[in-house]
Design a protein around this nucleic acid. Structure first.
Lengths: 112, 112
DNA sequence: TCCTTATGCATAATAAACTTAGGTATTAAT
DNA sequence: ATTAATACCTAAGTTTATTATGCATAAGGA
């Protein structure tokens, strides 16, 4: 995921947020959407994505619906109610992280 | 480091930036400084810090100076020239990361 | 005096999240 | 016919952190 190690730990947040916007998506679609939105900055590898989706499903945050399109099988993922709540949590954590890092990195933010 | 997984990958950036401000610091001092600046939000564990410092030293980004204070040995770390350059890189990567995540998470940032 | 907390360093076992490298299968394009 | 794109998947290995230790000195309270 990009040359920076900072993205480690943010994949779940990204997946949840995308599903929160798009109602339902399938795995490959997520990789393409992220590449498109970030103009190539961020590429989700499938080796990271699929295990992450499976874990989110196992944790009850996502539910699955299979669909055949053009004789190809797609696995659509959709947020559950629990997944919606967790999305809010993850987004709050991201804002908190960004705030904290800006304070650490730009001392001006820490002054009052 | 906090309950959020997002901090994974940012320890090196934090260390480099602190040393960039403070000229030289020792390990324990770094943990205390981070706790203080972030008002307890972020606590650097020693099990993460010391290996990270050793790696930065091995990579030639930090140099060491031992000092005895109150009969206790302190290991002061200081940025090398290479370390200074890498600090700039890491800070740029952090800004890039934040920008990308905001675009992903807040679609408004992506419109033009 | 004894015990805990703080200071200061360190490593080893485990866990989590990722990369890299494969594998299968269909469709579209050259 | 072969490559690229679509669409899913897993396994081995790496990185980065947590948790749990260990050692040692200093300070403080019961």
């Amino acid at each position: 995921m990009a040359n920076s190690k900072l993205y480690k730990g943010s994949l779940t947040t990204i997946i949840l947020k995308l599903l929160n916007e798009s109602d339902k998506m399938y795995g490959y679609e997520i990789t393409q959407k992220v590449k498109e939105i970030t103009k190539g900055e961020l590429k989700i590898t499938e080796g990271a994505l699929y295990p992450a989706l499976h874990k989110l499903e196992a944790d009850g945050l996502l539910e699955v619906e299979m669909k055949k399109v053009d004789n190809r099988l797609r696995k659509y993922y959709k947020l559950t109610e629990k997944g919606n709540k967790e999305t809010v949590n993850k987004l709050n954590e991201l804002q908190e992280y960004i705030k904290t890092m800006q304070i650490l990195v730009n001392p001006k933010f820490g002054l009052e």
